[in-house]
Computed example of a mutant assay.
Amino acid sequence: METHDLRAIANKIRRRDLRAVFEAGAGHIGGEMSVTDLLTALYFHIMSVDPKSPRDPDRDRLVLSKGHTALALYITLAEKGFIPPEEISTFLKPHSRLNGHPNRTKVPGVETNTGPLGHGLPVGVGMAKAAKLDGASWRTFVITGDGEMQEGSNWEAIMSAAQFGLDNLTLIIDHNRLQQGARLADTINLAPLAPKLAAFGWAVEEIDGHDMEQICTALSPDTITPGKPKCIVAHTNKGQGISFMSDNVAWHHKVPTEEQYKQAMTELEEAAK
């Protein structure tokens, strides 16, 4: 798929995400906007997945470790055909399977339950190791937040992945510099992330996490370093695409007013032209 097509899909996902958060009265819209381009590139250009066979043993796997941005994943899955698009309107409603964090047993296309931060990468390491043991060719992708990288469990998983030579594993860090309530720099400042991962034996690449061409190139199997897991540090903006949300820590978990909703939708619609 061409990059302009991928950008159009990402914009559509952002608009639907905005509307769903506004209608539900809840959601993690800032981080959803920062991760959307990464999800779009994975599902519509990189990963081998089939909505008609969501448990195909040869499928590629994605673990959205920053599970609080589940809505962005649900909408991406709906666009891909895993779930009906109209189901997005049930987000967070009673008896809906579209909860605030993804549930593997309820939603086709979700690989593992996430939400407690620091769990997704260890699970992803297990998946990648299992593929190696089976001699399988499928790949495992894990998306974490940068604040989430403060969890010690991630660094244990990073050591393990390097020890096992898991070159079928790609970690994507959504590096939007913000976490709940504060900037990364004001809590436990892990930046710069790239040299730390490299020191643990990973192949590391830094990209603009909103440049679709850079994202697709970095995720390509042609960029795999044999014997090394890969980390992509994707520099992103929280609230990407919406002027008053962009790089604003207040929008980690906030719902726009009707006036803000209309302004944000207008901006996204203008960007789609």
Rank of each mutant, 00 (worst) to 15 (best):
L190Q: 11
A198G: 06
L121G: 00
M212F: 08
I242D: 00
G109L: 03
G239H: 00
R7S: 13
N168Y: 11
T170V: 13
N237W: 12
G227C: 01
A191R: 12
L73E: 04
E269W: 05
P226M: 02
L98K: 09
R16K: 12
I143V: 08
I75R: 06
P122C: 00
I232L: 07
I75Q: 03
T225H: 13
H28P: 01
M127V: 05
M212N: 07
K228C: 07
T76N: 01
N113D: 05
P229K: 08
A157E: 01
N189F: 14
H95L: 08
G118M: 08
R104I: 00
D146F: 10
V21W: 02
D222F: 12
G115K: 02
Q163Y: 15
L92G: 11
C216N: 03
H235D: 09
P226F: 01
F82Q: 01
V142W: 03
D5F: 13
P108K: 00
V107R: 00
G100E: 09
E258W: 14
Q179I: 02
S220K: 04
D174F: 06
G145E: 09
W155V: 08
G145F: 02
R55Y: 10
S34M: 06
K129P: 14
S153P: 06
A136L: 13
R19D: 15
I172N: 04
